[in-house]
């Protein structure tokens, strides 16, 4: 088993939380893991990414080589496209459709849609809307994680356990709403793929 994942978004959107949850889920499965994060200057409203590598074999590089990424999982649509050079030919791009616009030259919605449609394998869902729909707007990042579960090669149960571990400190209600978000994301992605 080997999964090379790139997590993408804008500083503050919660990609490191996703990384921690996938990491915890992978460790439960006894897999090796390397996860490169971005700290420092780029966090201030800039683009952020994390390379996450899972394998039952030893992992050498902390970075995913270009053209070898199995899954791009992005919380922001334009950011998902920034990592296309990394995506393998049969890899999949999974992204939130809600843009985060903090720059003046952000591409037009139509153009963005067209660019995403051009990617061979893609799932685009509106995670912000789905999260609001289940009454926990802040769990938008976990909705996106849910959308990717099928492509991460780990059982759903592991992700549920990981959510409990990671959010446990914040109380039962937070755990509940995040597990709900995880399922909502998965269901939406499945419907989207149909």
């Amino acid at each position: 088993m080997k999964k090379d994942i790139i997590l993408a978004g804008v500083g503050g959107q919660g990609i490191l939380t996703i990384a921690t949850i996938i990491g915890t889920a992978a460790v439960e499965e006894g897999l090796n893991l390397k996860q490169a994060e971005v700290h420092g200057m780029s966090q201030r409203g800039g683009d952020v990414q994390s390379h996450l590598r899972l394998s039952d074999q030893p992992i050498f590089s902390d970075l995913v080589p270009e053209g070898k990424c199995d899954v791009i999982l992005s919380i922001e649509p334009m950011e998902s496209l920034r990592y296309l050079p990394y995506l393998a030919k049969d890899g999949i791009l999974i992204t939130n459709s809600t843009p985060f616009i903090n720059i003046t030259n952000y591409p037009e919605a139509e153009m963005l849609e067209k660019m995403l449609a051009n990617v061979k394998n893609h799932i685009v869902i509106n995670a912000d809307e789905i999260a609001k729909g289940i009454g926990s707007a802040r769990a938008m990042n976990i909705v996106m994680l849910g959308a990717a579960v099928k492509h991460l090669g780990l059982p759903m149960e592991n992700f549920e356990n990981a959510v409990k571990t990671v959010f446990g400190r914040k109380g039962e209600a937070v755990v509940e709403s995040n597990i709900k978000a995880l399922h909502a994301g998965r269901e939406n992605a499945e419907n989207n793929a149909k």
């Binding site: 990424c69 920034r82 952000y106 591409p107 153009m111």
Partner: peptide, 11 residues
Amino acid sequence: GEAIPENVVGR
């Protein structure tokens, strides 16, 4: 893999 589309701008 594929190049970054040109309409993807810096942030």
